[in-house]
Amino acid sequence: MKSTIARSWWWKITALVLLFYTYYEGFLGEVPRMPILNETIRNLYFHVTMWMAMLVLMICNAFYGIIYLNKSDLHFDLVAEESGRMAMIFGIAGLITGMVWANYTWGAPWVNDPQLNGTAASLLVYAAYFILRNALPDSTKRARLAAVYGIFAFVMMIVFIMVLPKMSDSLHPGKGGNPGFNKYDLDANMRMVFYPAVIGWTLLGVWMMSLRVRFRKMELKNEDQQ
C-alpha cells in the first residue's frame, strides 16, 4: 500500500459513511419475512460482512507476499503481515458473531458443520503463519518464508471455506443443497445494504491495517536511530 493512499482521508470517510448507512438501514430497512430467521436475517450486514472483510485482507496478505517475492522490499512484507493480522481479527469476530447467531437459529453455538470447522481450520492455518514469523529472527529470511507460506495458507483457506463445504452437507445457505442467499432470500432491498456494508467493513479493516503498518514502520525507524 502506497503511503500517499494510507495518508489520504477520502476512503476512510467513505468507510465511516458506509458503516453509518449500514447501521441505519440494517436496523430500519425492509427485510423479507422468513421463518426461523425472523429478524436475525439482519445479521447478514454484521456477520457475513466480517467474513468478506477477512477474505479481502487475506487476499491482501497473499498479494503483498507475492509482491515482496518480486521486489524484495521489506515494506511489502510488513503490509502482508499486518493484513494477515487484521484478517485474523475479522475472522475471530466472524466466528464469534456466527456462534451467537447459530445459537438462536440452529440451536447450538457450534454445530458440526463443514463451514464452521473449515473456517476454524483456516484460522489455525493463519495462526501458524504468525508462529512461523515469530520463529525466524532474520528479517529477510522471515519475509521470504512468510510470503511463501502466506500463499499456501490462502490456497488452504479457499479449499477449507469455499470448496469443501460446498461438497458436503452444510447448514449455511448456498452449500450442500441449501439454497444460496441470492436465490430468493437476498432481495434487492437487502442487496442495497449488503454490498455497501461489505465495502464499509473492508475499508475499515484496511484502515486499521494501514495504521498498524505506519506504526510499525515508525517503530523500526526508531530502532534504527537508536
Binding site: K12, L16, W207, M208, L211
Partner: peptide, 11 residues
Amino acid sequence: SFYMIRIDRKV
C-alpha cells in the same frame, strides 16, 4: 469513528 480518526491523526 472519532477514536479511529484520532489515532490516525496522532500517527
